[in-house]
């Protein structure tokens, strides 16, 4: 599903060159639930961003769903992300000015959908994460766990093939973290969604199919 080949990422400032990723190659199979672990600053988030086409590697190639992504322009990239990828962030990144339903509808705005379809799909996605009764709330009126569930609903509303989650349980206590983890596991099991998750938490990582460890920008396991 995702094929990374010899990915290298170098950050340059005027004085220092930092190698964030050093020749990482990784294959993620369709329907796989993969977790990436490693100490802070080892490059796991960078790797995830590159998989999500949010960042470009300095070297190497990425194929997602058998599609080479190097030569896509801004608009094509946007469309590709919209159809294929869903994102979950550690700090949720919900839009506080919008109600829960509008937040979940967001990815659908960038597709050819009617307002009615959007509402239907968003409600459905919220049902899956158990928040159907919170559609009119604003994000600030919700707990952290609820916010992350809204973010998951937003990530799955467009039925993407792949979900990329950057420490989805990082800001939550273990009970709430387990809830979120269960939702992701069910999603993977029932819908066959490929999930790549960055985490610090060994327990969470062991619930996934495969674990990849990074250290100083290189894959160690």
């Amino acid at each position: 599903m995702i094929r990374l080949q010899n990915i290298e990422k170098v950050y340059r400032t005027d004085t220092i060159e930092t190698l964030a990723l050093n020749s990482v190659s990784l294959d993620v199979a369709k329907g796989e639930f993969l977790s990436i672990m490693g100490p802070s600053g080892c490059g796991k988030s960078t790797l995830l961003n590159i998989m999500g086409l949010l960042d470009v590697p300095s070297k190497g190639s990425i194929k997602i769903a058998d599609k080479a992504t190097e030569n896509l322009n801004d608009k094509q990239l946007a469309q590709f992300r919209n159809k294929t990828l869903g994102f979950i962030f550690q700090s949720y990144h919900l839009i506080n000015d919008l109600q829960v339903l509008d937040n979940v509808e967001l990815p659908l705005l960038y597709r050819d959908t009617t307002a009615k379809e959007r509402k239907m799909l968003a409600t459905e996605a919220l049902e899956k994460v158990g928040l159907a009764n919170r559609v009119k709330h604003f994000p600030t009126q919700l707990s952290g766990g609820q916010r992350q569930r809204v973010a998951i609903a937003r990530a799955i509303v467009g039925r993407p093939d792949i979900i990329l989650a950057d420490e989805p349980t990082g800001n939550l206590d273990s009970a709430m973290g387990n809830e979120i983890m269960d939702i992701l596991i069910n999603l993977n099991r029932n819908e066959g969604t490929t999930i790549v998750m960055v985490t610090h938490d060994e327990n969470m990582a062991h619930k996934t199919h495969r674990l990849v460890r990074l250290f100083d920008g290189s894959q160690v396991q």
Partner: peptide
């Protein structure tokens, strides 16, 4: 900027 990032991640092009 967070909103901008989210919108871009979920498929908004710069033009949009």
């Amino acid at each position: 900027s967070s909103e901008i990032g989210v919108r871009k991640a979920f498929g908004a092009s710069s033009k949009t």
